[in-house]
Design a binder for these strands. Structure first.
Lengths: 215, 215
DNA sequence: TTTCCCACCTGCTAA
DNA sequence: TTTAGCAGGTGGGAA
């Protein structure tokens, strides 16, 4: 994955629009928002908003702002094996009255801190896309979450590059759809002339799949 | 996924060949087999025979035939947290003298009943494949398990299943195109609404490619 | 290391 | 429309 991390402490740079309380659309001039301490923000990766249903929290931010009781401490957890590891964090929506509960835990296999359960709902409800930014703040013990769109909305969807409905009957050029192998293995869906094409590869695929559409 | 469940109580319908004791190949005319009460059978899914090492038992059959002490009862199980939940069921092989022990438990997270430990060995030893059928019977307290191959050893090329040109405008049911991995690697061509689809897989493909066409 | 196993998790979909 | 069921996943621990 060639995506740059692009994680930064929420600095007060000039282009840092509504990084904390959303002075633009939702927050109005909420004075309470002024008291919120910025913790960190992250430009989300494709994986963060994809089917892995988890947000990787950069380790240094995680350990600074969201410490977890026994993170690398592989203590005797057999006795208290009740329930999944980690904890549940409740974030208030910086722009509304909603609250977002995320399971937050440490994955020793990848040595990373992640938000899992609940995260996919946030991605869906906020329509988060790769390149967008999520920011985390706090006011005392109260936690807040906010997000904002990336600067350039980017090409929406290469595959959906606007094939006009009538293109099928007036064949245009040929086009090629390259499906990343990893994506393909998880189930990739294309839409062709109003028909959903779901493509799945076997387990061992190593190279990208090609779907040549000769129109 | 558009996979039909194809689970049914083992009824004595006319096409229900060798549903219980395998009168065809193995069981001969075993009179003992006649006393066995059919419980249920399931056409196993790719997951049931794959790397998840578990068989999902349809809930209504599980609750009817294989009740579990405290299934939805979220009783105080903290005290006796020793060992995994659930129980162990012992099934006699309907065709032989073997016995198969499966851990059987309830997963509250997915609200489903599953056979876990021991199941993968059965899959391996019987060479179970997706689409095959496993059936469960009993004679009093004795439990039996049997399996049989799927009827059609897999369609050679359902791709040519003649989707009429106008089908796109009068949406029929959904159809599934299964492309053999080896075929796919050599370059497989489909024709959809007059459009040639050339499909190529990567080098390492191990399983069949699926192209679900949901019309 | 690999495989199995356990207890979680979630999107899709049919009812 | 909402929801229960389940197919298809995950990380982590044990063997």
């Amino acid at each position: 994955m060639a995506m740059a991390m692009a994680v930064a402490p929420a600095s007060r740079s000039s282009d840092d629009r509504q990084a904390v309380a959303g002075a633009g659309e939702g927050g109005g001039g909420d004075p309470a928002a002024q008291r919120r301490e910025r913790m960190f923000e992250k430009v989300v990766t494709p994986s963060d908003v994809g089917k892995l249903n988890r947000l990787v929290v950069p380790k240094h931010f995680a350990e600074k702002y969201l410490p977890l009781p026994p993170p690398p401490a592989a203590a005797a957890a057999r006795a208290a094996a009740a329930g999944p590891a980690g904890t549940v964090l409740c974030f208030h929506d910086a722009r509304g009255r909603a609250a977002w509960r995320f399971r937050y835990s440490y994955w020793s296999s990848s040595q990373s801190y992640v938000m899992t359960k609940g995260w996919s709902r946030y991605v869906r409800d906020k329509r988060l896309a790769a390149g967008d930014t999520v920011s985390f703040c706090r006011d005392g013990a109260r936690l807040f979450i906010d997000c904002r769109r990336r600067r350039r909305p980017a090409a929406p969807a290469p595959a959906a590059a606007a094939p006009p409905a009538m293109a099928a009957f007036l064949p245009p050029a040929s086009c090629r759809v390259v499906v990343d192998a990893e994506e393909a293995q998880r189930g990739r869906r294309l839409r062709l002339f109003g028909v959903d094409l779901e493509l799945r590869a076997g387990a061992g695929a190593g190279e990208p799949l090609l779907l040549d559409l000769q129109l």
